[in-house]
Nucleic acid binder design. Structure first.
Lengths: 130, 130
DNA sequence: AAATAACCTACTATGTCAATAGGTAAAAAA
DNA sequence: TTTTTTACCTATTGACATAGTAGGTTATTT
């Protein structure tokens, strides 16, 4: 289940794309999207650390995208916000090799599923939403 | 992320399908699959309540599938075990209608994603694994 | 100097996951 | 009829994630 972290972040990123290039204050986005500003702050930090947006302090400041909307995929955003988009623990990034992997009857299906999900989100860009 | 609930349950169901029709003791399945018997007990209860398996007490007892393996889909099992396979809260079973639904730019994608996932698991049957 | 805005640390309430522990009821074999 | 085997049931726990809230600090512009 995709959590609010990923869903809110995506909506904010689309909002940023829609507002053009200029810096957009978080307060405005929170109001437009109907999301708690305080909560959004935390999510923005993750996006900044992930190199997806950058913020400018002070009057006239705000957030802006680091890249053009057609260069940012939904997959990147979700991966940042949801920790990892691995669909099963066996396929997660730092997971130790499962001892049953060689004989596991279900693993091939999970791999197929994992690829399906990744491809789905990798193929969608911010520019598709505006 | 698919949890151990869903993954273990699927493995047990495949195990049951492989052992033929006769009742299979949980102890044997737990050993074969390398899963805690006590934990599996809880999962079996859910499967029983869901009408997917039925248990027989006493010596010579055990669990058996309620239907033929080609009549049981992975989707049914996961839906039972993971509570609901809704991929976002907005699309969950008893969710109240989101006030932003009519103007939400992301909802169409979530719907598409939800359908993709559902179709993927609905199209796979236990008999595909044996 | 004042206003604006991002940035930062810390806390909390709720819920789920993944089990564990210990006991009860049913059914078959001895 | 007793014993064994098996499912069934209730309760509890530790760890972690989610979805926030609260309050303060730094940076930048007017």
């Amino acid at each position: 289940m995709i959590s609010t972290r990923g869903r809110y972040a995506l909506r904010v990123m689309i909002d940023l794309a829609e507002q053009g290039g200029g810096p957009v204050p978080l307060k405005d986005m929170a109001e437009r999207q109907g999301i708690s500003k305080k909560y959004l702050e935390i999510l923005m930090r993750d996006l900044v650390e992930g190199g997806l947006v950058r913020g400018a302090s002070g009057r006239g400041g705000g957030y802006r995208l680091c890249r053009a909307p057609d260069e940012i995929s939904v997959g990147e955003i979700l991966e940042r916000m949801e920790g990892s988009m691995a669909t099963v623990a066996c396929l997660a990034e730092g997971a130790e090799e499962c001892p049953r992997a060689s004989c596991c009857k279900t693993l091939p299906m999970w791999k197929e599923y994992d690829r399906l999900v990744h491809d789905f989100f990798a193929g969608r860009r911010l520019s598709d939403f505006v």
